[in-house]
Each structure stands twice: as structure tokens, then as C-alpha cells.
Design a protein around this nucleic acid. Structure first.
Length: 151
DNA sequence: GCCAACGTTGGC
DNA sequence: GCCAACGTTGGC
């Protein structure tokens, strides 16, 4: 089993939005970065554990624990002409973008990026590295355990 | 709103 | 295949 951190803009889908979804589950559509896509398509398994992270907002940080609830399948928005995520180069026969489903396990207290930076144990986390923009990053099991310990 | 960092695009 | 230009991300 692997561990991940997945960024979501709260204006788009906050942890409370996720909690209100049927089955507390959301399709993680809209990823248009190949590295992030490859993580979902090639590595994520049902049951993988996820840190749900609010990005691009007033208080960025971890706000929930979640898990992968469905293996990657073609992102439906790539075929939708009216979608912001429409990709003219993608076809149902040769889809380019994939997404998993993510289910909220539980909401947690906000662990801000500022707080995360205070722990030497977490200084190697991808999300804390300068210039990091990747919306999906692997989390070391040691880091996962440490974070569970401070919730 | 700023801007550094990074990814993608496309002309050559 | 190079690389300048452009677009996006996301903390601040």
C-alpha cells in the first residue's frame, strides 16, 4: 500500500464539499499533468491512503484523510467540449487523461503548510520543496505515520 | 495581485 | 532536438 498527498483547491472541492458527496467520494478529474496522471494510472491501488490538501487558498494545508476507492479510468471531462478540461487530442479509443476516485475517511484539523515546515521529520516532503507544483505526490510511510501522530 | 518556478508548445 | 515564449501553479 502506498501513501499520497493530493491537492484540491477548496473553491473547487473543499474537504467539506467532499464530505457532502454521495459516499463521500469524488472522481479526481481535471489532472492535466503527466507525472500526476502517471501516479494515478500506474501506481494507485484501491486502499492507498491519501492526505487531502487545500491549495491556492488563504490557509493551505492538510484538511483530511482519504483513500483511493476506485482504480484509474478515463477522465470523462477530456471528451466534453463544454468542459474546461476538454482535450481535443483525446478520444474514447485513445484517452489521454485518467483519474481515480477518492473517498474521504475523515476530516482532520487543519495542519497548515506553515506548521508542516516546522517539523524536521517532514522537511523532505515533496509538497514542501521549493518550486513544487505537482498536485499529486507520493508520501513516505514514515512521514505518513508522523503526520497521523500530530493530528 | 505578485512573481518564482516549472511544464508545454511550436518555430526553426 | 533546441529553446524562447507562453501559460499555469500556488505560496505569500
Amino acid at each position: 500500500m502506498r501513501y499520497w498527498l493530493m491537492k484540491s483547491e477548496p473553491g473547487d472541492c473543499s474537504v467539506d464539499d467532499l464530505a457532502a458527496m454521495p459516499g463521500k467520494t469524488v472522481a479526481w478529474y481535471g489532472v492535466r499533468n503527466y507525472q500526476a496522471r502517471n501516479f494515478m494510472r500506474d501506481q494507485m491501488k484501491v486502499g492507498d491512503q491519501v492526505l487531502f490538501y487545500h491549495s491556492n487558498c488563504a490557509e493551505p494545508g492538510i484538511t483530511g484523510l482519504a483513500e483511493v476507492s476506485r482504480l484509474a479510468y478515463p477522465d470523462q471531462t477530456q471528451f466534453d467540449r463544454n468542459s474546461h478540461y476538454f482535450d481535443p487530442k483525446a478520444t474514447p479509443e485513445t484517452p489521454r487523461w485518467f483519474n481515480v476516485d477518492v473517498r474521504l475517511v475523515k476530516k482532520v484539523r487543519l495542519v497548515s503548510i506553515k506548521e508542516l515546515r516546522t517539523y524536521p521529520e517532514l522537511e523532505r516532503m515533496r509538497v514542501l520543496q521549493k518550486g513544487n507544483r505537482l498536485s499529486i505526490t507520493p508520501v513516505d510511510p514514515i512521514e505518513w505515520e508522523f503526520i497521523l501522530g500530530i493530528l
